[in-house]
Design a protein around this nucleic acid. Structure first.
Lengths: 226, 226
DNA sequence: CGGTAATTTGATCGGATTCAAGTTATGTGG
DNA sequence: CCACATAACTTGAATCCGATCAAATTACCG
């Protein structure tokens, strides 16, 4: 199936936005769209055929599994985000859909070729890689030595920002893309601690829970500052 | 001072290794070497003039400071490593020398120009950025939910690998580039816990401490597996 | 050789985990 | 559409690991 770039909702935010129309169409011929169900795996650690993808809609998690089988969430991917370990012999991390998602997939070699042909694309990817690095480091400082309350508060605010259309202001009401278990895996906590912390935030009047996934930010100032 | 690439010890491992001699000399004219004393700052968070550098010798740490003034080490940089936040309005993290170090510094705009002129350089940097991302995520999984013993063991093994000439096998005897306090800041632990953990490893016969910084790996198998 | 900073060691405390029920969603087949 | 089954989440009590507070010891530098 060829890509429908013309109607792509992330057309002017994704990496391919740096290309002009002709270049983009050329690249589009090398890619294909794929729809992922909740929990479906896009890339598996250990595979040797490199591939990469742009997230069109939905959300992804990048995870690793430690020796005891505990999953660790290393990063979340939001629409227009790019995933793919193009260099290196094999894939190191799993990439899994958090909810129903749509991605635009390319084979590693095909994309490398595109980078060679369109250096701007390489630069855009470099910029993105640096941003991913900052995000990873932000999560690192969040989970490093902060209390459970700070970690959960940080995650809520970060997710509220991602859920918002405007990049700066957090959404007042949004749905967590993650289950409690996934939140815990991301923050280095247990399910129970996450749950108790949310309860405390709600009792303090900082948030209101709405069903399992819904969060309303009543008074973000009551959350412990990151 | 112009660069002495001809005698540079990381000449064929650093990012500039992808350039041919003429290109490298051209790039060299835009850079300058700088010697850093232990504890000296290369880049400060908050500055708005982007710059970047290749580490020639010594070691650097990339740190952030949280609201309470606690320092968090986000990454270590070893010789041939590249540091620099070229995109984005200002620098987000501090870069500080762990010991006496030598770097090869470029202004942000000058290096961006070089990337434009030599696309291979951009690709090399992209590859490096991805590796940095993996390193950051590795630290993330190490500090996420692992016990103090696993964290310290992981750090020792990682540092032993960095200290070794051969990339795969760890050095049997090496000096920690970090103080106890810095180790603690990197692992999300306290000085006391790091110290106690090292004592336990030594009593178990896994390592031998030699002075403040020296570590000899007697039996790595006795260390908890990452 | 003394002085200072870094590290180690000890005792106590607290927050997060663990184990164990309970409760609320979610979805399925009757 | 409802009853039921199952999974997800919440709540409670006990435990434990690492933090904190405090002091002793060691390494290092002039």
């Amino acid at each position: 199936m060829s890509l429908a770039c013309a109607t792509c909702p992330v057309r002017d935010r994704a990496a391919c936005a740096v290309l002009d129309e002709a270049e983009r169409d050329e690249l589009a011929r090398a890619g294909r769209t794929r729809r992922l169900a909740k929990g479906e795996t896009l890339f598996s650690a250990g595979l040797s055929d490199a591939a990469c993808a742009t997230l069109v809609s939905g959300a992804l998690k990048i995870t690793s599994t430690d020796s005891e089988g505990r999953e660790r969430i290393l990063s979340l991917v939001h629409p227009s985000g790019f995933v793919g370990e193009m260099f290196g012999p094999y894939v190191q991390h799993d990439v899994v859909a958090l909810g129903e998602s749509e991605v635009c997939v390319f084979s590693g070699p095909a994309f490398e070729l595109a980078i060679e042909r369109y250096p701007r694309l390489g630069t855009a990817l470099l910029r993105r890689a640096q941003e991913d690095l900052y995000a990873s480091r932000e999560l690192l400082s969040l989970t490093g030595n902060a209390s459970a309350e700070r970690r959960v508060a940080g995650a809520i605010l970060s997710l509220a920002r991602s859920a918002s259309d405007s990049p700066c202001h957090p959404a007042r009401r949004f749905d967590l893309p993650l289950s409690r278990s996934e939140l815990a895996d991301m923050l280095g906590l247990t399910i129970e601690t996450v749950s108790r912390t949310l309860t405390r935030f709600e009792r303090a009047g900082a948030i209101r829970r709405d069903g399992k996934r819904g969060i309303e930010l009543l008074d973000p100032a009551l959350l412990p500052n990151t």
